[in-house]
Write a protein that binds this DNA or RNA. Structure first.
Lengths: 125, 125
DNA sequence: GTAACTGCAAAATATTTGCATCCTT
DNA sequence: AAGGATGCAAATATTTTGCAGTTAC
């Protein structure tokens, strides 16, 4: 299962990189006309598998993908906190750490949070 | 749009109530043989719309539904923290409050977090 | 009686897979 | 040359919708 460098992968990677934030599957496919639907799914899944990108699932169930800075480090700590603006629907990755206290006997392995609200551009004055 | 009390709704509500935790759509439909697929979707969507239940989307994109205690109060504060066990796949609602610090200019309206880990039953000793 | 609810089938979506072919290494 | 990658079409899975018949109020 050796991964190969292909134009399709590079193109999708470039799209992900161009966007500082996370982008929806839909947005990705909209920017692509010359790669097959199935291939896009395969590549995105592969990126997630390989830890190159990660998948965010928004309130509405839609998938977003992002290259988080924390993931570029080898040992991703999987403490993802994301933010989605209710107005512009943009999704961003936040770096802030979070403190979670669990009940007795529970162990945490991974955390995934999505904040909905208004970003600095869309926030009401 | 006046809601009516029907056997189908009561049955689904009973299933949700019987489970202290959140249950997947699949689990719900598995327990039901005499209600149509479409009807189940409609009822669950209605419950979420009406604030009777809420929808949790797990890592794998699967939907879970729960009657959270915090939602029974009229003003739900939408500060949901959920936990899914990696072993038994059970999903629970946690009540603990969370402190989130946002960047300048951002406003939070809703938070939804999913912790993955091991519950007190499945946690490795 | 009226409008909400339901079942059924079909439609709309979303995602995956088999297979032949192509391309990277 | 070998096997990963791709396109295409078809298969799956998931959720919604139109419509006619049924039921709660």
């Amino acid at each position: 299962m050796n991964r190969r460098k292909t134009p399709s992968k590079e193109k999708i990677l470039a799209i992900l990189k161009s966007q500082g934030d996370a982008i929806s599957h839909e947005t990705i496919t909209n920017q692509i006309t010359d790669i097959n639907r199935a291939t896009i799914y395969r590549i995105l899944n592969q990126f997630c598998e390989d830890g190159i990108a990660h998948r965010i699932i928004a309130e509405n169930g839609k998938q977003f993908f992002a290259l988080c800075k924390t993931c570029e480090v080898e040992e991703h700590h999987h403490n993802h906190l994301h933010f989605q603006c209710n107005t512009c629907e943009k999704v961003e990755c936040f770096e802030s750490e979070i403190n979670i206290s669990l009940p007795e006997g529970y162990a945490i392995e991974n955390f995934n949070g999505l904040i909905n609200g208004y970003c600095n551009t869309c926030a009401p004055a």
